[in-house]
Simulated assay, not measured.
Amino acid sequence: MIDRRQALIGTFAAGVATAAGAQTASPRVKDAAIPGLPDPTETIDLWPAGAPGMPKVPPVEIVDERSTDGQLPDRAVRGIVRPRMVVFRPAIPNGSALLVTPGGGYARVVVDKEGYEVARWLSARGWTVFVLFYRLPGDGWAAGPDVALSDAQRAMRLIRSRARDYGIMPDRVGAMGFSAGGHVCCDLATRHATPTYTAVDQADRWSARPDIAAPIYAVQAMTQPLAHAGSRALLIGEAASPALEAAHTPANHVTAQTPPCFLAHAEDDATVDVGNTLAFRAALKTAGVPVETHLFTHGGHGFGLRRTAGKPVEAWLGLFHAWAQSRGLG
């Protein structure tokens, strides 16, 4: 552990990562970025010798641009073979960090609307944000349904191990996830101590438990009728047994060690049933875990930031920021 003054002094002014050697670039499409807001260039590879459990036929990383608006990119990456974090450093760190796991139905990982846009908003308010591009369970990795959790656990440990370099406190590191990335976030919050990989270096001595967690319109249940069919099929298979469904439904793993949670969901979400959030909230309440819950009448699915203008759901990120401050972060 390091004292607060050392952490805040750190080496953030240098603006460089401490890991030796070249890191894998952030996912990108040529010339696809918001004008005036260049993509971040600092990345951290999770696994120094390559990700464990490589499939016999490794996936090929492809970045798709799904937007038809040249002023508003909407990229998504699939076939991730080198999982990594993209770093958003604030001008003046407030001492808190957030690991962000974007959605994508476990078929892809969204880059912009649930990654970079949220990261820019939070880093402007002092947060150091790490957007995680995690491996996908349908690509044949040895860890199977736990592969994204492995990446999230490793990411949390790396962040804490490098706290001094980023001007953050190792006891002020949260997690936020969206949709299927919300399942990763719930999984991390409830199964942070579950061994899913063999330790590779000193960073793995650190805890993977987030100090707070914020699953946003999260996929959570793997049982019907609440399960999101696409995410479920890619995570555990269409013919998964009831035991496998239960094993990968985070509400079943909530304990007193689950961190305080912030939940947000739109009740008119036609993609991921709001019952996912309600079931997770009920499990948190039963376990005595502090939980802040915001349900919005309108907002649909995948609202992020760009689809909230003029709607009550526009307030969600500000509500999270205020709640996080009440918990001693931000």
Rank of each mutant, 00 (worst) to 15 (best):
R209C: 01
R108L: 10
A7L: 03
S161L: 04
I34A: 02
L158F: 05
V100C: 01
R108M: 13
A91K: 00
L295W: 07
I44V: 14
T101I: 00
T41I: 10
I2F: 06
A213C: 02
I44L: 10
T194A: 04
H298E: 13
R205N: 15
V77P: 00
M85F: 06
G95R: 05
R307K: 15
E42G: 00
P52Y: 12
L158Y: 05
G53D: 13
S241I: 07
A163R: 05
L234N: 09
E292V: 01
F320M: 07
T198M: 04
A208L: 13
V57I: 11
I80A: 04
V81R: 13
H301W: 03
G15L: 15
P55L: 14
G167S: 07
A322G: 07
L158I: 14
F12S: 02
V289Y: 08
P83N: 06
A13T: 13
L226W: 15
G275R: 10
I92V: 05
V111I: 08
P93R: 03
L295I: 11
S241L: 04
Y166S: 07
F88M: 09
L234P: 04
P90H: 00
R172T: 12
P102Q: 03
A97P: 11
S67T: 12
A49T: 15
G15R: 11
A51T: 15
G299Q: 12
R75P: 01
H183E: 10
M54W: 04
T223Q: 11
V118S: 04
R327S: 00
L8R: 02
A270N: 08
S161I: 06
A14R: 08
A309G: 05
E245P: 08
D171Y: 15
L8W: 07
I44H: 02
G21P: 05
P38F: 12
A22Q: 14
G230W: 10
P102W: 00
L46H: 07
R164N: 05
A155D: 12
W141H: 04
P40D: 06
M1K: 14
D39Q: 08
A20W: 09
G95K: 09
A152G: 13
I159V: 14
I168H: 01
